[in-house]
């Protein structure tokens, strides 16, 4: 049964980019994220933040959190510095009220700016 619209909790979606030595899979990132939040704010804090990884492609991702807990989520993301022994840094690109907004505003715009690796390689071979 769906939650009544008036009782529905407001959420925010954080678009982020991962800068890492090695590729990190979804499972590792989710584990590290929950660890970081639990270590920093405890179990109560984690339940208040209510984090959930909406999408992740190995480089860009969208993380959902409660509307009034964006600052705490940012802090927890910033605290992640190592995954599987490799150095990692997570950069929050922006916050939006919808998944679509976060995707269009922060992730797709960046992807358009960056040239596709195949095209770049083809141009290099042509020269």
């Amino acid at each position: 049964m769906k939650t009544m619209p008036t009782l529905r909790e407001k959420k925010r979606y954080l678009a982020f980019k991962i800068i890492s030595e090695e590729t990190i899979n979804r499972r590792e990132l989710t584990g590290e994220l929950l660890d970081s939040i639990c270590l920093l704010f405890g179990d109560t804090g984690a339940s208040e933040i209510n984090p959930s990884l909406m999408s992740y492609d190995g480089r860009y991702g969208i993380l959902r959190c409660q509307k009034d807990r964006t600052s705490e989520t940012r802090a927890a993301l910033a605290c992640i510095n190592k995954v599987r022994g490799g150095r990692v840094s997570i950069m929050v690109l922006g916050i939006s009220g919808t998944v679509k907004g976060a995707m269009e505003k922060f992730i797709q715009q960046r992807l358009v700016k960056e040239p596709e690796p195949d095209k770049e390689l083809q141009e290099h071979l042509n020269h």
């Binding site: 800068i19 890492s20 030595e21 920093l40 600052s71 705490e72 940012r74 802090a75 993301l77 910033a78 605290c79 510095n81 150095r87 990692v88 840094s89 950069m91 929050v92």
Partner: peptide
């Protein structure tokens, strides 16, 4: 100590809020 140790100003402000 490495380029991976940088955090953006907004993240630094969030950490300072702790």
């Amino acid at each position: 100590y490495s380029p991976y140790d940088f955090r953006s100003p907004r993240e630094a402000a969030a950490l300072a809020g702790l």
